[in-house]
């Protein structure tokens, strides 16, 4: 799996490198009378990135097994010990997507619904995704955090945060 990811990553970085090289040839030249224009740095770096991603691709195809043995020099000593304390479990992708989706909506609509309400809803939802139940505690913490930050930041520190939406008179 790691190998497949590295192959794709090297392709993506290769494309990024090419994009930067091509992009820097199209930069407008400045009136500043120097032979060293704004294009030279990104163009050089883009070329290096192309070379490095080619190397990564080569490494990935060549010896994935040998590379694995090199790894974990540092953690090898403690791996045995850590096994006692951490119980590995299934990756929780569902929880991640729910919380990430909520965070995205929260950030996207932050200026529309305002900071206090948005934060409260996001936190309450995320708390419940992490672990169902304990509604009362979740509600109290979410409310305390969102209102606390809002009032300290806006009223005391005079900062800017989107307030309550206009249909709530406050």
């Amino acid at each position: 799996m790691m190998k497949r990811f590295d192959t794709w990553a090297s392709l993506v970085f290769l494309l990024i490198g090419i994009a930067f090289v091509v992009g820097s040839t199209q930069l407008s030249t400045s009136a500043f009378g120097s032979s060293v224009g704004p294009d030279i740095f990104p163009m050089g770096l883009g070329s290096i990135l192309i070379l490095l991603s080619a190397r990564l691709m080569f490494e990935t195809f060549k010896a994935p097994v040998a590379a694995k043995q090199q790894a974990h020099v540092e953690s090898a000593a403690t791996a045995e010990e850590e096994d006692e304390a951490i119980v590995p479990s299934k990756p929780n992708y569902k929880g991640f997507f729910l919380i990430f989706g909520a965070a995205f909506l929260y950030a996207f609509f932050l200026e529309d619904i305002g900071y206090p309400i948005g934060t409260f809803l996001f936190l309450l939802f995320a708390f419940q995704v992490m672990e169902r139940g304990k509604w009362l505690v979740s509600t109290i913490i979410a409310a305390a955090f969102s209102l606390g930050i809002y009032f300290v930041f806006v009223k005391i520190l005079q900062g800017t945060l989107p307030g309550f939406p206009s249909f709530i008179p406050l």
């Binding site: 919380i99 965070a103 929260y106 950030a107 932050l110 900071y115 934060t119 996001f122 936190l123 995320a126 708390f127 992490m130 672990e131 913490i141 955090f145 969102s146 930050i149 930041f153 945060l161």
Partner: peptide, 13 residues
Amino acid sequence: RYLLPIIVAISIF
């Protein structure tokens, strides 16, 4: 369960 969502909220804030 409380800590992680709050870290997200602090980052956004």
